[in-house]
Amino acid sequence: MKPVNFDYARPKDVAGVLPLIADDSRTVKIMAGGQSLGPMLNMRLVQPDLVVDITGIEELRQVVETPDAIVMGGCITHADIEDRRVPDMTRGALPAVAGGIAYRAVRNRGTIGGSITHADPSADWISILSALGATVTLRGPGGSRSVAVEDYMLGALEADLRPGEMLVSVSVPKLSVSARWGYYKSCRKTGEFAHAIGAFLVDPERGVSRAVFGATESRPIVIADARQLLGEGTATEPGRDFDSRLAGELVEAGGMSDPIDRQTHVVALRRAIQQAGSA
């Protein structure tokens, strides 16, 4: 389990990366923390000609606070978020979820940008960031554009990157003080790939009520207005009137044909919502 030979580049800025990844005469792979790519390289599932290490780029390791969001460079690690080296404006949602990603040694190198670009359906960031309404900023030859996280993921292992484009930052909206969230993932053992994820956010001040079914083997199923799932839509006790049948129909419509998968995803979301209710 040793990788194929590849060339290696460590540009000092994003401008240095773009020409390298624009070269389609060879297979070029961007590497951030390498915690998902590393295993695939070792197993030779991925056989690049060139690996572009972006962890030397200062811009990608920075955090900027705007009036209504926290903007994290793509190379911010799970541990940076878990340890609150990145200020938390999500009422604890991001640090809590970060602390449950894989294992500490992995979190010390694994990055938020790398994780969502790798687009593993079972990974945590895709689900919780979709629930929080986060966006990513991509930069390429044609300049920058922003995309909602759930749209950035096109499907299993496929992100919406145009030729020559890379992710530079993730922007997470600041939650109101009355906001509540819940996150439930079903794993057979600690740190394992999730088999079902439920994520939920209610932020009445901002008029947001979002629910996400994650770990679907594909992109997450996002319910942008989750009030329909919650009976009258009151946020006082959101778990109580959860409409399991409707939730089941939603995941089925989202392409989930297996009844047990549907059941576990519905229960995961219900538990996430209950968690928010009891928080």
Binding site: S244, R245, G248, P259, I260, R262, V266, V267
Partner: peptide, 20 residues
Amino acid sequence: IGKAASGKAGASADMTAQGE
């Protein structure tokens, strides 16, 4: 659990509902 439940309930039970 689903099999036992559908055995009791008769024909093809909806698993999601059963689980709930």
